[in-house]
């Protein structure tokens, strides 16, 4: 895959403009002149967004510029068709870009759409407030609930927008080794999740390219970016990046050798 492709989606998405009314107000406040990155609002014009639009715009611009700059330096690596590799090939410049990209990845991983099923507890969470899943749903031995109360007891292969139940292929919890919260439902730090993510003893033995593929193709990852509607008909909130941006950020991070922030 040629490198420019990874910048493409990020930048090309920037043609989309506009936020919802509330976010727009925030954008007009001093210091927030960059409106171009509230892109998903335009794409889903009738969806309501509540917060973070302006914050997200800032982050995204910063990220895009950095990635765009840093990206060039790793071009030859990928263009040559080699698989992405770990830090032995990373230069200081790519490591910095990789860490920036990682923060973006982290913002997605810790979004309720993702982290609600990466719990450390015996149960999944739901909602943007990440409350304990109602109806006494439990993790079960394989992360798929228990017979009689499986994940697929409700969650089908696709979103059921008519009844407000989200769905995707093989709905299940991430294994406990991939927990991104502690037992008190507190989200783990960027460094902690990063280290956990690249630990092949915890991540189903995935290397960088495996992680990238996971982020590119895994149906439940894809679901997070198309999470459907709530029971009241309103759309579920989305991660801070589009899926393309998420993949691009993951790629940058992977190409940088999956660097992780220092402690904590």
């Amino acid at each position: 895959m040629p490198l420019p492709g990874y910048i493409g989606p990020v930048l090309s998405a920037s043609h989309a403009f506009g936020c919802d009314r509330d976010a727009g107000k925030a954008l007009n406040s001093p210091g927030f002149k960059i409106v171009g990155y509230c892109l998903r609002q335009a794409r889903n014009a009738n969806r309501k967004r509540f917060t973070m639009c302006s914050h997200r715009a800032m982050l995204r611009l910063f990220f895009t510029i950095l990635v765009a700059c840093a990206g060039w330096s790793v071009t030859p690596l990928l263009a040559s068709g080699q698989s992405v590799s770990r830090k032995e090939t990373a230069t200081p410049a790519t490591r910095e870009a990789g860490l920036v990209a990682w923060q973006q990845v982290y913002s997605v991983l810790t979004h309720p759409r993702c982290i609600n099923c990466h719990t450390a507890t015996n149960y999944p969470q739901q909602g943007d407030d990440r409350h304990r899943h109602v109806v006494n749903v439990v993790r079960g031995p394989g992360g798929k609930g228990v017979p009689g109360l499986n994940c697929t007891t409700c969650h089908q292969g696709a979103n059921a927008d008519n009844t407000g139940v989200p769905g995707g292929h093989d709905w299940h919890l991430a294994p406990l080794s991939m927990k991104w919260q502690d037992l008190n439902d507190k989200i783990l730090s960027s460094a902690e999740i990063c280290r956990s993510l690249i630990d092949r003893s915890k991540n189903h033995n995935l290397d960088g390219s495996g992680l990238l593929k996971h982020h590119e193709e895994e149906p439940l990852v894809l679901w997070a970016f198309q999470p459907g509607r709530r029971r009241d008909g309103t759309p579920r909130s989305l991660p801070q990046l589009t899926h393309d941006e998420f993949v691009a950020a993951t790629r940058t991070w992977v190409e940088a050798g999956t660097p992780c922030p220092q402690n904590p």
Binding site: P147, T153, C154, Q156, A160, T163
Partner: peptide, 15 residues
């Protein structure tokens, strides 16, 4: 074979 809450499953997803 999976216990399923039929009130939230659209018929289109039964297959």
């Amino acid at each position: 074979g999976i216990a399923t809450r039929s009130c939230v499953v659209p018929v289109s997803l039964v297959g």
